[in-house]
Lab assay of single mutants.
Amino acid sequence: TRVETATETAWISLVTALHLVLGLNAVLGLLLLRWQFPAHYRRLRHALW
């Protein structure tokens, strides 16, 4: 059971790390998009709101 718990903890930390990386990538991607295409982003925002 100790090995199972260790594997579980490893999986949880792995999934958490993946989520963090994906979240960071999403934020960075959005920031890059805003920086690269400000006009396009503004138009998109007007369409959404």
Score class of each variant (00 low, 15 high):
residue 5 T to V: 03
residue 34 R to Q: 06
residue 25 N to D: 08
residue 16 T to E: 05
residue 30 L to M: 11
residue 1 T to L: 13
residue 24 L to C: 12
residue 48 L to N: 00
residue 27 V to A: 08
residue 33 L to E: 01
residue 19 H to Y: 15
residue 37 F to H: 01
residue 47 A to K: 07
residue 9 T to A: 13
residue 37 F to S: 07
residue 2 R to G: 10
residue 26 A to P: 05
residue 24 L to P: 08
residue 43 R to Y: 01
residue 1 T to H: 13
residue 3 V to K: 06
residue 4 E to L: 10
residue 4 E to D: 12
residue 20 L to Q: 03
residue 49 W to P: 00
residue 29 G to D: 02
residue 22 L to W: 00
residue 46 H to F: 08
residue 3 V to F: 08
residue 11 W to G: 05
residue 30 L to P: 04
residue 46 H to P: 11
residue 27 V to L: 13
residue 26 A to L: 14
residue 33 L to H: 06
residue 11 W to A: 02
residue 42 R to S: 11
residue 5 T to L: 10
residue 38 P to G: 10
residue 19 H to P: 00
residue 29 G to F: 15
residue 10 A to N: 01
residue 46 H to C: 07
residue 46 H to Y: 08
residue 30 L to H: 03
residue 3 V to E: 06
residue 36 Q to E: 03
residue 39 A to K: 07
residue 7 T to V: 14
residue 32 L to C: 08
residue 43 R to G: 02
residue 39 A to I: 10
residue 44 L to D: 07
residue 49 W to V: 01
residue 7 T to F: 08
residue 48 L to M: 11
residue 6 A to L: 06
residue 23 G to N: 02
residue 28 L to T: 09
residue 12 I to W: 01
residue 25 N to K: 05
residue 38 P to Q: 10
residue 22 L to D: 09
residue 15 V to T: 04
residue 4 E to P: 01
residue 20 L to V: 13
residue 10 A to K: 05
residue 36 Q to Y: 15
residue 24 L to M: 14
residue 25 N to E: 01
residue 9 T to L: 10
residue 25 N to C: 01
residue 26 A to F: 13
residue 15 V to D: 09
residue 5 T to A: 03
residue 26 A to R: 05
residue 16 T to V: 14
residue 43 R to P: 10
residue 4 E to W: 05
residue 48 L to K: 02
residue 36 Q to K: 11
residue 46 H to K: 07
residue 34 R to F: 10
residue 8 E to H: 03
residue 26 A to C: 14
residue 39 A to V: 12
residue 49 W to H: 00
residue 23 G to C: 15
residue 17 A to R: 02
residue 14 L to P: 00
residue 33 L to I: 12
residue 46 H to V: 09
residue 11 W to E: 00
residue 18 L to T: 00
residue 21 V to H: 07
residue 35 W to R: 15
residue 13 S to L: 14
residue 17 A to E: 02
residue 7 T to Y: 11
residue 23 G to V: 14
residue 8 E to G: 03
residue 34 R to V: 09
residue 4 E to F: 12
residue 4 E to C: 09
residue 49 W to K: 04
residue 21 V to A: 15
residue 41 Y to V: 10
residue 32 L to E: 03
residue 40 H to C: 15
residue 39 A to W: 09
residue 19 H to N: 13
residue 23 G to A: 15
residue 11 W to R: 08
residue 49 W to D: 03
residue 21 V to Y: 02
residue 8 E to L: 04
residue 49 W to E: 01
residue 49 W to N: 00
residue 7 T to S: 15
residue 15 V to L: 12
residue 11 W to V: 11
residue 38 P to M: 08
residue 17 A to S: 07
residue 4 E to T: 12
residue 16 T to C: 11
residue 36 Q to S: 13
residue 32 L to Q: 06
residue 48 L to Y: 00
residue 35 W to E: 10
residue 38 P to R: 13
residue 25 N to F: 04
residue 34 R to H: 05
residue 44 L to H: 01
residue 42 R to T: 12
residue 31 L to G: 07
residue 24 L to S: 05
residue 46 H to D: 09
residue 24 L to H: 02
residue 30 L to G: 09
residue 14 L to T: 12
residue 17 A to Y: 03
residue 23 G to E: 01
residue 3 V to Y: 07
residue 47 A to N: 00
residue 16 T to S: 07
residue 32 L to G: 03
residue 5 T to R: 01
residue 41 Y to L: 11
residue 31 L to K: 03
residue 16 T to A: 08
residue 17 A to C: 14
residue 26 A to G: 12
residue 32 L to P: 05
residue 27 V to T: 06
residue 23 G to D: 10
residue 9 T to E: 09
residue 19 H to K: 04
residue 37 F to L: 06
residue 45 R to A: 06
residue 1 T to C: 11
residue 18 L to A: 07
residue 26 A to D: 07
residue 42 R to M: 13
residue 28 L to I: 05
residue 14 L to Y: 07
residue 46 H to A: 05
residue 39 A to G: 13
residue 46 H to R: 10
residue 39 A to N: 14
residue 27 V to I: 14
residue 8 E to V: 07
residue 33 L to P: 03
residue 44 L to Y: 04
residue 31 L to I: 11
residue 20 L to Y: 08
residue 31 L to A: 12
residue 15 V to H: 06
residue 22 L to T: 08
residue 9 T to C: 10
residue 31 L to H: 02
residue 17 A to Q: 00
residue 7 T to G: 10
residue 22 L to M: 15
residue 17 A to N: 04
residue 45 R to P: 02
residue 37 F to W: 00
residue 24 L to Q: 01
residue 30 L to S: 06
residue 19 H to L: 10
residue 16 T to L: 09
residue 29 G to Q: 05
residue 43 R to M: 05
residue 37 F to M: 00
residue 32 L to M: 11
residue 45 R to N: 09
residue 7 T to H: 13
residue 32 L to N: 00
residue 14 L to C: 09
residue 4 E to V: 14
residue 1 T to Y: 15
residue 44 L to R: 00
residue 45 R to E: 08
residue 40 H to T: 12
residue 3 V to D: 10
residue 15 V to Y: 08
residue 24 L to K: 01
residue 30 L to T: 05
residue 19 H to T: 15
residue 43 R to H: 10
residue 36 Q to A: 15
residue 40 H to I: 08
residue 41 Y to H: 04
residue 48 L to C: 13
residue 28 L to A: 06
residue 11 W to P: 03
residue 27 V to D: 06
residue 34 R to A: 04
residue 21 V to G: 14
residue 2 R to P: 11
residue 22 L to R: 07
residue 35 W to Q: 14
residue 1 T to R: 11
residue 29 G to H: 02
residue 47 A to T: 10
residue 18 L to S: 06
residue 2 R to D: 12
residue 12 I to S: 09
residue 34 R to D: 10
residue 49 W to G: 01
residue 22 L to A: 10
residue 37 F to T: 00
residue 17 A to L: 13
residue 43 R to L: 04
residue 34 R to T: 01
residue 48 L to E: 03
residue 34 R to P: 03
residue 7 T to M: 15
residue 42 R to I: 09
residue 26 A to K: 01
residue 15 V to R: 01
residue 38 P to F: 04
residue 3 V to W: 04
residue 48 L to G: 08
residue 22 L to G: 06
residue 45 R to I: 05
residue 33 L to D: 04
residue 26 A to Y: 08
residue 34 R to G: 08
residue 11 W to Y: 15
residue 10 A to F: 07
residue 32 L to W: 12
residue 9 T to H: 10
residue 16 T to H: 02
residue 30 L to D: 01
residue 27 V to R: 04
residue 17 A to I: 11
residue 44 L to I: 13
residue 18 L to P: 10
residue 47 A to I: 09
residue 33 L to T: 04
residue 40 H to G: 11
residue 32 L to A: 03
residue 10 A to Q: 06
residue 27 V to E: 06
residue 13 S to M: 13
residue 46 H to G: 06
residue 39 A to D: 15
residue 4 E to H: 09
residue 1 T to G: 07
residue 32 L to I: 11
residue 23 G to L: 13
residue 49 W to I: 02
residue 1 T to M: 14
residue 44 L to M: 10
residue 10 A to V: 05
residue 17 A to G: 07
residue 42 R to C: 04
residue 41 Y to M: 14
residue 43 R to Q: 10
residue 4 E to M: 07
residue 40 H to Y: 08
residue 11 W to F: 11
residue 12 I to A: 06
residue 27 V to K: 00
residue 29 G to K: 03
residue 47 A to Y: 12
residue 28 L to D: 03
residue 43 R to A: 03
residue 9 T to K: 07
residue 4 E to G: 03
residue 30 L to Y: 09
residue 2 R to H: 14
residue 34 R to K: 15
residue 6 A to F: 02
residue 46 H to L: 04
residue 15 V to K: 05
residue 16 T to P: 03
residue 39 A to H: 14
residue 44 L to F: 12
residue 16 T to G: 05
residue 46 H to I: 09
residue 35 W to Y: 15
residue 3 V to L: 11
residue 43 R to V: 06
residue 9 T to P: 15
residue 45 R to S: 09
residue 12 I to F: 07
residue 36 Q to G: 13
residue 29 G to L: 15
residue 6 A to N: 06
